[in-house]
Amino acid sequence: MTAGSPGAARPPALSPEAAASLAKANRLVELGSRPPFRTYVADLWRRRSFLWTLSQAEADEKNSQDRLGVLWTVLNPLLLVCSYYLIFGVLFGTKRNVPNFIGYLSIGVVVFGFTSSAMTKGTRSIINNTGLVRALRFPRALLPLSATLTELITLLPALGVLLVLMVVTGEPITWHWLLLPLALAIQGLILAGLVLMGARLLNISRDLGNLIPVAIRLLRYVSGVFFDIAQRMDNHPTGAHIMQLQPFALPIDLVRQCLMESQPINWHHWLVGIAWAVGLFGAGVWIFWWDEAKYGRG
């Protein structure tokens, strides 16, 4: 209301202390300081519809880039399944002793595909959206989260094909199928947590981004995508147990338990999965929040 105070002589610059106390007296908020963690989480929750809009828009945009569009999200995993089947199943013989190997492999490929794409895109979501970060103020964690959600949305057609494939390869439809959403939710939260951590790391040093494809390849080979961990490591029961329960292998296992008759439900694994999901997601948000004021510089 004191519009302008134009004619007034400019006061000399205040000392930092005086400035701080004046700001406090007028109840001003300091910019570039991260909000308290609880406020941050509440803010994230308040903007959840923004998260949804962003993910949906990105998913649509992704599908519209190619002529065949959505078809690729289905074709890609199918082609991958074929090549894995030939190389690992037939050539290296990992299909021995695995009932319904095609189904087994397809679940591995599709579910790990989500891990791979979310980790690749999600960790870059801050540095690839500098424009958005510099244009608008919103809790930055929304970007990695929406990238993860986007990948989940684009996974859906492939999942549909997977279900059809299960029926075609002779799996009976049981009530276990109802657990599928839970398994995917566990995976989604695990990934979101890891993506948040990775996004912060990449914001600190972009160069680390070059390591992510390597890490994903390594994980693909140790996470039981195309072989049965327990079977391959039957002389190292502890090692096998650790490999089965690590957060990248576990979701694949859980989905197989949902969809395949030969894989009985193991509640112990589900509990570990939920623990991973809660733990990693919480840790991810917390770790990401630490640098909240620093995104957008680079």
Partner: peptide, 14 residues
């Protein structure tokens, strides 16, 4: 605007 965090100094806003 709080979009490029300053390396030094502070900004207060309402």
């Amino acid at each position: 605007a709080g979009l490029i965090p300053p390396t030094r100094g502070r900004v207060w806003v309402s």
